[in-house]
Structures are given as C-alpha cells and as structure tokens.
C-alpha cells in the first residue's frame, strides 16, 4: 500500500521506478513531493522540469505538470516556462552531470538572473545512466569508468558555485537526512528567487562499487555518521571538519529583485 503522500503526488501506474536497489534518488524524490505538499501548493500550478540522466527520471513519476527535456538544458526550459507564466511554481530536478557539466552555463546564468526557480540536484557523484563515468562532483582520485587510474579532475562544490553566480538561496541536504532535506527544499521553493539545493544521493551501483564504498546501507551509514549540520559545523575547526560533509542552508537572501517580477514591472511601465 502506497502512503497517502505517494498516492497524492506520484503516478502510481509508472511505479516502481527504474532506479537501482539502494539508490538515493527515490528518497530525494519523496522529499521534493513532501516539500510541495507541506507548502500546500496547488498541483495544477506546479511544474517539474528535468533533464537527462538517472535523476531526471523523477519527472515521469511525479503527478504534476512534468517536462522531461534534453541533457543539461532543464534549467533553460524552466526559465522559458517561468518567464512565460510567472504564476507557476517551477522546480527543476537534475543531476550533478546534467546541472554542472553539460548544463553548467544555464545553472550560473539562471542564478545570476535570480529567476524564481528551485533547482534540486540529485548529486550521486557519477554519471549513472551511462554506466559510471566521472562527473564534476566525483571526488578527485576516485575511480570511474573514464578514470580507470583515478580522477585527476578537481571538483565543483555546487552551493558555492551557485552562490558565486548570484544564487539568493543555496543549501545542501542528503538522502539520509530526510526531515532536514525536505525542509531545505521547502524553503527553497518558498524563496522568491533562484534556489539551489544540492542533495547528496548515493549510487552503490557505480560510484560505490567502483570505489569500494560498500553497499547502499554502508553508504547511507556514512552519511549518518559523517554529515554535520551547518550550525554545528560553524563551531568546528577546519581540522575537525576534515572528511565530513556539511548540510544546511548557506544563503537565504530575500528582497533581491526577482527576474520575472522585474520584467512584469517593465511591462507595466510601458503601459503607463
């Protein structure tokens, strides 16, 4: 029996999903649905846009207006939707490769505009759909099918990248920390401006197996034991934070002009 949340927010006939056993994406998709539900949003006015990759399959399962687009371009499609109909709540579900490699340009420019989109990254540190190639968030030194001797690539920290580009809301959550991550997504959706929530997923099939991280339970246990809440992290030294991951909200700046609202003002000005 599906829970009330699943009944109300998912396309049951498309379930079960295609994600591997132990994948973190299902938990994160549920967090997004919970966040939308908590906010009491009108389902007719919620649009989910995704790109290509494991993460982006989420759009097909979620029972809203859903647009499954091309690789890397979800934010660009979402920008068009939000600009055309600012009254819609537009949420992008994307992956680390989708949003920060092929789609990196759209990510930084949407952040720069401060357009009211919520970008939820299911960050599994790998290209899963194509079978385990390194992404811009694969830790340096990790093994991947295209890094058989260990990746020499340096990584992106997505909330820092988004903030550098002007994002007015930036946060990180994790698959293990369900209530916290749900709240971070919820606040991102409620935020009037560009919001990015980098969600640590787990990919036991490719990233985990290649790098001997153990099974899904072990990878989730790692999150449980090594994730530090931002409030706590603020009191810790760099040394103490070595090998830890910090979740929480890094920026929530209200009162910055939002792009579509500014354009509406322009239209009004021309009418006058």
């Amino acid at each position: 029996m599906a829970s009330e949340l699943i009944n109300n927010t998912m396309r049951l006939r498309n379930l079960p999903h295609i994600w591997c056993p132990g994948c973190g994406n299902g938990i994160l998709m549920r967090d997004v649905a919970q966040a939308i539900t908590n906010l009491g949003l009108d389902r007719d006015k919620v649009v989910i846009v995704s790109g290509i990759g494991c993460s982006s399959r989420a759009a097909g399962y979620m029972n809203y207006n859903t647009l499954h687009t091309t690789h890397g371009r979800a934010i660009a499609f979402a920008t068009g939707i939000k600009m055309a109909k600012p009254e819609l709540t537009v949420i992008v579900i994307t992956g680390d490769g989708d949003s920060s490699a092929i789609g990196g340009n759209h990510l930084i420019h949407a952040a720069r505009r401060n357009i009211d989109l919520t970008v939820v990254v299911f960050n599994n540190n790998i290209y899963g759909m194509t079978g385990g190639q390194f992404s811009p968030t694969t830790p340096t030194g990790s093994l991947a099918t295209t890094a058989p001797y260990g990746s020499i690539d340096r990584t992106f920290d997505l909330p820092t990248l988004a903030m550098g580009a002007g994002a007015t809301y930036a946060a990180r959550g994790s698959a293990y920390h369900v209530p916290q991550t749900t709240k971070l997504i919820q606040d991102g959706i409620a935020h009037k401006g560009f919001a990015l929530i980098d969600c640590m997923a787990v990919c036991p099939t490719y990233y985990g197996r290649k790098n001997k991280k153990g099974d899904a339970v072990k990878m989730m246990t790692w999150q449980k034991e090594n994730v530090v809440m931002k409030a706590k992290a603020d009191t810790m030294t760099a040394e103490e934070l070595q090998g830890k991951a910090v979740i929480g909200c890094f920026r929530n700046e209200e009162n910055v002009p939002e792009y579509t609202a500014e354009y509406t003002k322009l239209i009004e000005r021309l009418k006058a």
Binding site: R73, A76, T79, G80, I81, M83, A84, K85, Y263, I267
Partner: peptide
C-alpha cells in the same frame, strides 16, 4: 514584445534560446 504584454529573454547561448522558447510554448505562449 513588452509593449504588447509579451516577454523577451536574452539567453546565455543559442541552445538555451531554443529551450526557453519551447518552455514558453509548453506554458501556452
């Protein structure tokens, strides 16, 4: 466009220009 209540977007590249136009059309514009 803004004179007739329409909207114009200068995008970051050609690819996103097409994507945003398709997005707007999905929303009925």
């Amino acid at each position: 466009l803004p004179k007739v209540g329409g909207r114009f977007l200068q995008m970051e590249d050609e690819i996103s220009g097409a994507a945003a136009a398709i997005g707007a059309s999905v929303a009925g514009v």
